[in-house]
Simulated scan of single mutants.
Amino acid sequence: MRHAEADLAQVLNTGPFHLALRAALAVRGLPLQRVQHHLAHRGIKVGVTSLSYWQQGARRPQRPESLRAVRALEEVLCLPGNSLVRLLGTGEGEACRAETRPPGRSADRSGAVERLVAGLGPPADSGLHTVGHHERVRIGARGQLLGRDSQQVVRAHRDGVDRYLAVHHGDPGCDPASVEVSAFENCRAGRVRRDRASGVVAVELLFDTRLRPGETYVFGYGFEDGTGGRSTEYIRAFGSAGGQYMVQVRFEEGAPLPVRCRRLSWGATGTQRGPHTELALSGRHRTVHLVEQGVRPGTLGIGWDWE
């Protein structure tokens, strides 16, 4: 039983939603008919078939009344508040199409992102949940964003997923035509779309296999930029909840070191999430990093001040 509780705590942190729901039902030992009965006592009508689909990953609760039922499920199954709801986020496509998007420039770029992604077809990566994402960012001698490398671990929650859509936002002055895309681990680059006006590049990363529900996959990719102006932050947007995220920024030899670095975080509505706390910069290794154990919808990253 102790192992089952530990597994439940883990999947509540990493998702996806259907596996977390299934684990909670198993730990509590409640058949779906009893769950339906408890929900009915709270004035919420949900069919046993719907509950079964939710735990299988065949359907996801999205309508307001369904989300109300999920919140009630947290009570019925004695789970922490918001633990299941946060795994639903604002849409799986956005969760797995995480992108660098500084809040101050998001309004004029969001349209470009949607156009480019639409040009790549339906977001097939909507069948993925990000379990972990490690990212390394390099800043050059002029203070410009030289490039970034990502390694991701994802888990499929539906059958047949075989690609991921990655998006890169250059800093002001970026030339998207000169940005190089690399697929260096367990994937290959498919179609690439670029928008010169906004400095946005979108790429389709193709997996070597089609994933089955519950299967995990590790892949790596990167963007070589170096075409924009002086950078003062690196921020990534998350459309829904995910697992661990780590980002490390390295200021290359010959690059100036910032006088201070800080953690930046905003909620999904754009409101600041907590204080923007200072981060330690390693002068010897010329790096600064942050680690987020359970990503929430919104934006997260590192900002720095030059002299």
Rank of each mutant, 00 (worst) to 15 (best):
Q62H: 04
P102T: 09
R71I: 00
W266E: 05
T49H: 02
V181T: 09
M246I: 14
F219R: 10
G173I: 11
H289R: 14
L12M: 07
C187E: 07
L120A: 09
A241W: 07
G229C: 10
G243H: 07
G43C: 09
E135P: 07
A255N: 10
G254S: 05
A72K: 13
R296M: 11
G303Y: 05
E180C: 11
C187Y: 05
P123M: 10
H168K: 03
G270R: 12
L165M: 10
T14N: 03
A6H: 08
Y221C: 05
T227L: 08
R296H: 05
H37I: 05
R2T: 12
E215Y: 07
S240M: 15
H157D: 13
D175H: 10
H285M: 13
C174M: 03
H18L: 00
W266Q: 08
A58N: 09
A24D: 05
T277Q: 06
L257G: 08
A118D: 13
V259P: 01
D149S: 12
R196Y: 00
Y234S: 14
G242L: 04
A40M: 12
Y234P: 14
T49R: 11
R68E: 07
E75Y: 03
R142H: 09
L87N: 04
E75N: 10
A118T: 15
T287K: 08
E224T: 14
P297Q: 13
W266T: 08
E233A: 15
G111C: 04
D162Y: 07
G43Y: 02
R28S: 08
V35Y: 09
V35I: 15
K45A: 12
W306M: 11
A23E: 09
H157N: 12
A24W: 09
L206C: 11
T216L: 05
A141Y: 01
L32D: 02
C174G: 00
P102Y: 06
L8M: 03
R260Q: 12
E94P: 09
L300P: 05
L128W: 02
V46S: 00
L25S: 04
E135K: 14
S126C: 13
D171G: 07
Y234C: 12
L165T: 13
H285Q: 14
L281N: 00
A40T: 14
P103K: 15
D175V: 14
L21A: 06
L279D: 00
T209D: 02
R71D: 01
F17I: 10
D108L: 08
P16M: 04
Q293D: 05
Q55S: 13
I44P: 08
G298W: 04
G303T: 09
R286I: 02
T209G: 00
E185C: 06
N186M: 01
G119F: 11
A118P: 07
V203R: 01
E224M: 10
S231D: 04
G43Q: 10
A69E: 02
A4M: 14
G228C: 06
T209E: 13
F207K: 14
R196P: 05
E75L: 13
V203I: 03
Q152F: 02
